[in-house]
């Protein structure tokens, strides 16, 4: 029952999945300006250079502002939608939820140009705020996916008991529902933060003259000289993302366990 060939295949596939991420630190610590084999020795100089790039620091600052705003906004919107879709039946439910979830499957380029055209048409100047608008659009479906799992496993009778004991809908939400879905909300915040931090295309189209980390990285690919520094930056980002996602996963599982649901695994 151990799967024989499937097991070997599965481990091989994991290796394929992780190949780029495993190579990343190898080249980030490689003492050679050209990113290719053979390796030229160990160095941390590429990491040292991260401290002295003003453009990078500005991009990082922008990215953090955008990611924090987008994660909070999209999680708030996610709470409304996930709560509505798990608790109520209402007309056009499929259509409305489908429209909200659309960015999950639509190519980002289409979302980006569509938003760009409308923003320019309305006369809103491009800035990091327009990037936030775009990122909220992209992040909300993921937030809903995480939160739906948290809300779905919620026992409706707990809520009814609260009403019977004299609580208002608002206080029931605050005292009963919110504590139970808090892990889901934290998971959603962390996950949407990671998505926003990593999102390139929306920022590329909507940032105007501003820059975010991915936009900065993309611009540096044109200069072979700065590629090792970018890989050092990438190593830092990957480590940060993995830490954030691990914490998110911890809270996601705790949230499902707390409300007594069964873990179906994954965010979809």
């Amino acid at each position: 029952m151990n799967g024989g060939w499937f097991r070997i295949y599965a481990y091989g596939f994991l290796l394929f999945l992780y190949a780029p991420i495993l190579l990343l630190p190898i080249f980030a610590f490689n003492d050679g300006a050209i990113v290719a084999f053979p390796l030229a020795g160990f160095t941390t100089k590429w990491f040292d250079q991260l401290w002295v790039e003003p453009a990078l620091h500005q991009a990082l600052k922008n990215s953090l502002i955008i990611a924090v705003s987008a994660s909070i906004l999209s999680t708030c919107l996610g709470i409304f939608a996930a709560r509505a879709s798990t608790r109520y039946n209402f007309p056009f439910k499929g259509g409305i939820i489908g429209m909200i979830m659309l960015p999950l499957v639509l190519p980002e380029i289409i979302l980006a140009i569509a938003l760009l055209v409308v923003l320019l048409g309305v006369g809103i100047p491009l800035s990091i705020y327009t990037v936030i608008l775009g990122h909220v659009l992209v992040c909300t479906p993921f937030s809903i996916a995480v939160l739906t799992a948290a809300f779905q496993s919620l026992d409706k009778s707990l809520e009814e008991a609260a009403y019977d004991l004299g609580e208002t809908p608002a206080s029931t939400f605050r005292l009963i529902i919110l504590p139970l879905v808090t892990p889901g909300i934290i998971s959603s915040l962390l996950m949407t933060f990671t998505i926003s931090l990593d999102e390139f295309l929306m920022a590329f189209f909507l940032a105007g003259t501003e820059s975010t980390l991915p936009v900065y990285i993309f611009s540096q690919f044109r200069f072979p000289k700065s590629v090792p520094v970018v890989l050092a930056l990438g190593t830092v980002l990957v480590v940060a993302s993995i830490i954030l996602l691990t914490i998110a996963e911890y809270f996601r599982r705790r949230g499902i366990a707390k409300t007594g649901g069964k873990d179906t695994g994954g965010f979809l």
Binding site: L77, A84, R87, Y88, I96, M99, I100, L115, L137
Partner: peptide, 26 residues
């Protein structure tokens, strides 16, 4: 139905303004 629509409305309006309207525009 009304409760559900009210609950979903913030997200739905956001998607309508920043997703549906732009898509119709292009």
């Amino acid at each position: 139905a009304a409760s559900g629509l009210l609950m979903v409305s913030p997200t739905a309006i956001y998607a309508l303004l920043l997703l549906a309207a732009p898509l119709i525009t292009i």
